[in-house]
Design a protein around this nucleic acid. Structure first.
Lengths: 115, 115
DNA sequence: CATCTATATCTATTTAAGTCGATATATAGT
DNA sequence: ACTATATATCGACTTAAATAGATATAGATG
């Protein structure tokens, strides 16, 4: 959990978009992120693996779906810094419209342990 | 001043070490950073150019020296996030010992407009 | 057990970034 | 003008990371 690795992980726009949605929505599965960002599923999975490796997020399997959420064991400074960042950028493109797109999604999987 | 570019810029350890010293000390010249980090001058200059391009820092020329400091026009969230980060990591290696090394430097240029 | 859906991984390709050493520029002092 | 110091830039090389598409795995359904 090196600071430089945490920064590098969020220096990619696809990953920052995913993390922004996860911070705002709590917990999302891969198909919801794929829908919101309108990107190919392998690309989303690949970037989620990067966020997992940097320990920004953890995943949880439930049936066919794999849910991702912010790692509760992040150092306090990392939590503070990502929240400050996302509060600062969430109203800008493309982060704002990603959330709107997600909320337009019908048939979202029902998350039995919603956050 | 894209968020992803700000993150990428601090995802390199040399640059994060420089920025950490600048946040803590206010304003430093290249030779002070070179001394503190014990790295070749061209390498330090190269990374400072990156921090300048990402608009993390601005520079100021005074005689032979070029002083770098945090860009006062950073977005508020970026200021908050970098300060939270550096407060969180400044007591860890190598950031803590960089500051100690800097303070051991004799013949530091006298900065006439010290911050 | 065949099939569908959700997700991850693999391979190949391209692009970007870091490192090193040499050199160039600019200022100050003698 | 000559030399020394501070800093930036350039070129060559190496390494890492992003992208895209194909394929593999795993659970659910009929």
């Amino acid at each position: 959990m090196l600071p430089t690795q945490l920064f590098k992980s969020v220096s990619d726009e696809t990953r920052l978009r995913c993390l922004s949605l996860l911070v705002q929505e709590g917990e999302l599965c891969v198909c919801e992120l794929t829908y919101a960002l309108k990107l190919p599923q392998p690309k989303i999975s690949h970037h989620l693996a990067n966020l997992r490796k940097a320990r920004w997020v953890i995943d949880r399997k439930e049936g066919l779906w794999i849910y991702y959420r912010l790692n509760p064991e992040l150092p306090q400074w990392a939590m503070t810094m990502i929240q400050a960042s996302i509060m600062g950028i969430k109203n800008d493109a493309p982060y704002a419209s990603d959330l709107l797109t997600l909320l337009e999604m019908t048939d979202r999987p029902v998350n039995t342990c919603s956050a």
